[in-house]
């Protein structure tokens, strides 16, 4: 008789197994979009998602990240070899630091630990107006507060009204409305811009 093993059980086994953390790599390579389609969502609309956490990193010990949630909750995050990590761009576990802000999606284990499938450090998604433009920098007005958005040559991408992303940000205009996906510089009003979506 064929034995099936769902993703939760596989991750749990991998994390709790002790010797060597295999985690999501045991599932084989999944393209990013396929990974998010791999398991149907079963959470009640409006309800908190137990498989999601957010907060600031208070410590990193081995492969465990402790998060202080913005609502006061504490989260223990187990990072595995298969955890997808983003910090301005896809990156590795060693780039995470105390003080980083974080969103994490994974599988909640019986002991309350969240085994991370995906982890986004310092990611922000902001709508803003461009107040001024400098050399490799955009000054952004976000809900009445000024943000400094750093353009990173070779990495920052611009999308003009749905056209394919390009590296040229020179078409951005002062007064224009933009959506910015970027990485916050902790405890500052600065971000590095990953993608800027420009409106008409």
């Amino acid at each position: 008789m064929a034995t099936t093993m769902d993703r939760r059980r596989l991750l749990s086994t991998a994390v709790l197994g002790g010797a060597g953390i295999a985690g999501a790599t045991a599932l084989g390579s999944l393209a990013p979009e396929a990974a998010f389609a791999a398991e149907p969502v079963k959470i009640e609309p409006g309800a908190p998602d137990p498989n999601f956490a957010e907060g600031r990193v208070t410590s990193i010990t081995g492969s465990v990240v402790l998060l202080a949630g913005s609502d006061g909750a504490l989260h223990r995050i187990q990072v595995t070899n298969g955890t997808s990590i983003w910090k301005f761009q896809p990156t590795t576990f060693d780039r995470l630091e105390k003080g980083d802000g974080m969103y994490v999606r994974g599988v909640r284990l019986p002991d309350g630990t969240l085994a991370a499938d995906s982890l986004w450090a310092n990611i922000v998604n902001l709508t803003a107006h461009i107040a001024s433009v400098g050399r490799n920098v955009l000054h952004l007005d976000h809900h009445g507060k000024r943000l400094i958005g750093h353009v990173v040559p070779g990495t920052t991408a611009a999308v003009y009204n749905g056209t394919p992303a390009i590296s040229d940000v020179s078409l951005l205009k002062v007064g224009g409305h933009v959506q910015v996906i970027g990485a916050w510089h902790p405890d500052t009003n600065e971000i590095s811009i990953a993608t800027v979506y420009a409106a008409n």
Partner: peptide
Amino acid sequence: GSAWGPCASTGRGACGTCTSGNF
């Protein structure tokens, strides 16, 4: 809802119930 970084100023939304961790 409760948040870090530039999100910290966004509040609980027009319905007064919005939380980043909820569906």
